[in-house]
Design a protein around this nucleic acid. Structure first.
Lengths: 354, 354
DNA sequence: TTTTAGCACTCTAATTAAGAGAGTGCTAAA
DNA sequence: TTTAGCACTCTCTTAATTAGAGTGCTAAAA
């Protein structure tokens, strides 16, 4: 099948833009007067007929204007949308906000969710950065009261896990510190499997602590994705097509399940890829609950170090241009922050010794 | 003004219950046949007229059934609702779930939000437990790469703050550990003000670290309330009176602001208190956005140790009985967990020394 | 004095009918 | 290839009608 003519592409773009703005079907007349096109409405109608036949537009009913189909949006995003950058002013403002909360990783994700929600006017979801490879970097035991001890486990990548444990007998802080030091040296750089393999070499109190460390690693593993921050859920409800529909409720349920991003990325091959940013339009036939929605998502972070995901859920008629550029910008910004701030390879950490 | 007769109270209860169930105005006929009352609809009508005059019921329009007013709900919650307990089975199930994630504080709050949302069929908000008095318990410095060091600050109460800092020059892990140990001894049990008072006595690297600790304390202070977990937002949208109304969107916006619980508790004197559980009905004339909603909330934790808040947002016609008993039960459960697991007074922590 | 049957009255929500408006596809001319 | 003209289609709005639920009042019964 031959490609669309330039004029057809142009009209498709106009319909997508206008529908994004008004959420109402677009008629030929409307389009001509709105954009002062130097062709007649009949010509536009003919082109629209072609676009409809090709499956890029559809009519809600015989005598209504046109609305983009899922395929129409895909064509638009994949071939008509030119790469845009976030305005410089916006970039600077956002970067400044992040600069101010540079020290606190958990703030990033919250801030990213907030910025994303505001810029895209959709619901945003951001997962905290975390290492895929869960290795022990450091552990610490802190006496609290009697036999209760706080176990702090720092993973490669800087993630900190904490847990209260109950010893068989009371142990002084000095002894705990020495024990933690010994175990840190022994376990540093090891992942769950390696530690499990040498579990037999420990006895008594040490064995207990190592077991707890293993449990903590397992739990960190299964928690897969870590903290999830959401923002702008109310934005979705503000869209006219969702006010008072079941769709919005189901979408929010989906977001609340917290597994959505992971599932989507697992199937990411299916989505359209716009320079590292994935666009999932209308659930791509796989996620039935997402049918009236689109999602724009991207991973961020440094591979092998720590990675996370950020995404936006919005109506299918979302402003893809702005949303994609925001997601791309934030993804880059967060990647930089991860690279700057996160812990790097363990062997090199002792480069200055004594 | 003399009090309501028993029969009037009874009818008010029935109206509240029935309206909670159906969300439609309740007529006298309806009520008689529904509950096989041994009085005529005319009698019920007369009593309803009294209740309406007293301000406990109202009619959406002249020829409609009755609906409880805010005052009606207040009377119901305050004087008619008898204290109920969550069924034993439910209590056991919930306690078991918490038992399984006993070790991880951040899991509690998430789990509490989930349980609360399911049981109350509303939107739940839970803040993580935290100490009001921010005192240093322990600090740790972990070398990562070059001059980058991970500063871990454990507060009294067990809360852990982490932060990446950049030293002026590279320092070995041994030196960092010694430094952390020195500073832990010096700062242990002190709050922000005390540390700030003796800031002058530190110099060089130590002064830097102490400054970072102070910054971290300040930040922990301003974050007031710590992490906020939400669940069941979609439940609110499922209620018939909110499907397709602005109200639901505004309520969700309110929840997303994350300051709601704090504001509500600050005014808690205004709300009705049902055995430690606060019930805020229809915004109590203060929170305009909450007008069509009610909230049931409670604090939990051990005073002076660590406290948090949990609450439910639902329609004004929510099932107060079940919601209140769930909130009360969870509040108790979380309090127990905090008391069991959290760190206690610092001076006693060295009871077994060497 | 309290309760209840009877009844006229009121207001909403659902149903139907009519018409305006927007937009289309087709035909034939430019 | 484009465009003016036109009949046609379908939805959305408005108005009118009706069915139904529920009320308040009155007068009789308990």
């Amino acid at each position: 099948m031959e490609d669309l003519t330039e004029r057809q592409k142009f009209i498709l773009s106009l319909v997508v833009h206008e529908f994004t703005r008004t959420a109402a079907p677009i008629g030929s007349q409307n389009l001509v007067s709105q954009f002062h096109l130097d062709m007649s409405s009949a010509t536009v109608r003919n082109e629209m007929a072609v676009l409809t036949e090709r499956g890029y537009l559809r009519q809600p009913h015989t005598s209504a204007g046109r609305v983009p189909t899922e395929e129409g949006y895909r064509y638009f995003v994949g071939r008509l949308l030119r790469e845009t950058q976030l305005p410089d002013a916006a970039r600077r403002t956002i970067a400044h906000q992040f600069y101010q909360s540079r020290q606190d990783v958990s703030q990033w994700t919250r801030l990213a969710a907030s910025v994303l929600a505001v810029q895209s006017r959709g619901a945003s979801v951001v997962t905290a950065p975390r290492t895929e490879q869960l290795q022990v970097r450091h552990l610490e035991l802190i006496a609290t009261r009697g036999r209760q001890v706080l176990l702090i486990l720092v993973l490669a990548g800087g993630e900190v896990q904490q847990r209260m444990v109950l010893l068989d007998e009371a142990v002084s802080q000095e002894q705990l510190s020495a024990l933690a030091d010994r175990l840190t040296r022994a376990l540093q750089g090891l992942d769950e499997a390696s530690i499990r393999a040498q579990l037999g070499q420990w006895t008594g109190l040490e064995a207990s602590v190592v077991t707890w460390v293993l449990e903590e690693l397992t739990q960190a593993e299964t928690m897969a994705g870590g903290e999830v921050y959401m923002d702008g859920v109310a934005n979705v409800l503000a869209e006219p097509e969702f006010s008072g529909s079941e769709d919005a409720r189901r979408a929010i349920e989906l977001l609340e399940r917290r597994t959505l991003l992971r599932e989507l990325l697992a199937h990411s091959a299916l989505a359209h890829d716009a320079g590292g940013v994935q666009v999932v339009i209308g659930g791509e036939g796989i996620w039935e609950e997402l049918r009236p929605f689109s999602m724009v998502l991207a991973s961020y972070g440094a591979p092998g170090l720590a990675t996370g995901t950020l995404g936006v859920l919005g109506p299918m008629r979302m402003a893809y241009g702005r949303t994609i550029s925001t997601v791309r910008f934030l993804s880059g910004l967060l990647s930089d922050l991860v690279a700057e701030t996160m812990v790097e390879e363990i062997p090199g950490s002792e480069e200055v010794n004594g």
